[in-house]
Design a protein around this nucleic acid. Structure first.
Lengths: 169, 169
DNA sequence: GTCAAACAATTCAACGTTGAGAGATCGGAG
DNA sequence: CTCCGATCTCTCAACGTTGAATTGTTTGAC
C-alpha cells in the first residue's frame, strides 16, 4: 500500500535521480497528514458550533485554571501561535456567542481579561469530550509502542524548532 | 528540556486528571510542529518570489515530466489538496508572472493544459535546490535512524487517512 | 441526432489570518 | 515629576482558501 508521498518521491526519482529526497519523505508527510487530521478534528468542533480557533481559546481557558480573573489576550495569542489581531477576532466571536467574558484589567488597563462564562464552560466541556474521543480514533491504527515512538520523535523536533522560534525574537 | 505540549499536558493533568491525553501528545505536536516547519519553508520560497502554493504547482509540473502538453487544472487540484477555485487563483498569479502557460486543451475543451515556461523552469529549479537544502537543515537534529522511524510512522498514518479520504468521496 | 446528466474550470462572496500601524497605558531613568 | 520607550490590544486593508453557483463541454442513453 502506497501513500501520496510515495508517488511524489517516485516521480522525483524518475526526473531528478540525483536529488536527495529523504527529508521530503518526512516533511511532505507531516504537511499532508496534518492537513487531513486537522480537517477531521474541525468536523467535531463543527458539531458543537465552534471553529478550531474558537475551541482553542476555550480549551486554553479551561485548562489554565484561569478562574474568574481569566487570561490576557496576549497569553492566549502566545498559546495559540497566532497574531494578536487573530485573537481579537476570535474573542469578538466568542463574546457574541456569550461563551466568554472580556473585561479590561483594572490593575493594568492595557490588558484584557478573558474568562469562560457558565455557558462557555459547558460548551467546551462537551466539545472536549468528543474531541478527545475523536483524537483517540484518529490514532487507533497505531500500536501503543508506535504511538510512543512517534510522540518521542515529534517532541524532539518540536523542542529544537520552538527554541529556534523563541531565539528569533 | 520541555516543549509547549508538555506544558499543555501538565495543565490538563492538573485540572482534569482523569482525561486521557495520550493522543493529544501526538496530535498537538503534529499541528504545532507543522506550523513551525511550514513557516520556515515559506521563508525559502519567499526569497524566490514565490508563495508555498505557487511553488507547489511549479514543482508538481516539474516532477511529473509533464512536457509541453502539461497537466490539467484538475490534476493539480488533486495533487495540491486544495479546491479547484484555489488552483484557478494560483494559476492566475503564475501566468501573470510568466512562469507557466495555460491553454485550453484542443482535444477536450473542458480542460486546461498547464505547463512550465522556460522562466518557470529556471525559477522552480533554483527554488527547489534551496528548498531541499532547507528541508535537510530542518531535520538535521534527527539521527538517520530516527528519521527513518519517523517517516515510517507518518507513512502508516497517512496511508490510513488517505484511504479514509478517498472512501469518503 | 437529441437531450439530459456528468464533468471541468471559473467566478464570487464569505471567512480567518497576517502584518503594519494606531491608540492607550505603564514603567523606569533622570 | 516628567517623559520616553516599551507594552498591550485593537483596527484595517490585503491575501489565499473555501464552498457554492455558473458557464461551457462532453458523453451516453434513447
Amino acid at each position: 500500500m502506497a501513500d501520496s508521498v510515495d508517488r511524489i518521491l517516485a516521480q522525483w526519482a524518475n526526473v531528478r535521480p540525483e536529488l536527495d529526497v529523504s527529508a521530503m519523505g518526512v516533511l511532505g508527510r507531516l504537511s499532508r497528514l496534518t492537513r487531513l487530521l486537522e480537517r477531521a478534528q474541525s468536523d467535531v468542533f463543527d458539531t458543537h458550533g465552534l471553529q478550531p480557533g474558537e475551541f482553542d481559546i476555550l480549551a486554553t481557558l479551561l485548562r489554565s485554571e484561569a478562574g474568574p480573573r481569566g487570561l490576557t489576550a496576549g497569553a492566549l495569542s502566545g498559546s495559540a501561535m497566532v497574531t494578536s489581531g487573530a485573537i481579537t477576532n476570535r474573542l469578538d466571536r466568542l463574546v457574541a456567542k456569550e461563551l466568554i467574558s472580556r473585561e479590561v484589567d483594572p490593575e493594568n488597563r492595557r490588558t484584557v481579561r478573558v474568562a469562560l462564562t457558565a455557558r462557555g464552560a459547558e460548551v467546551v466541556e462537551a466539545a472536549l469530550a468528543d474531541h478527545v474521543d475523536n483524537e483517540e480514533r484518529l490514532l487507533e491504527s497505531l500500536s501503543v509502542a508506535d504511538r510512543r515512538q512517534l510522540e518521542r520523535l515529534l517532541r524532539g523536533l518540536l523542542v529544537v524548532h520552538e527554541a529556534d522560534a523563541t531565539q528569533a525574537e
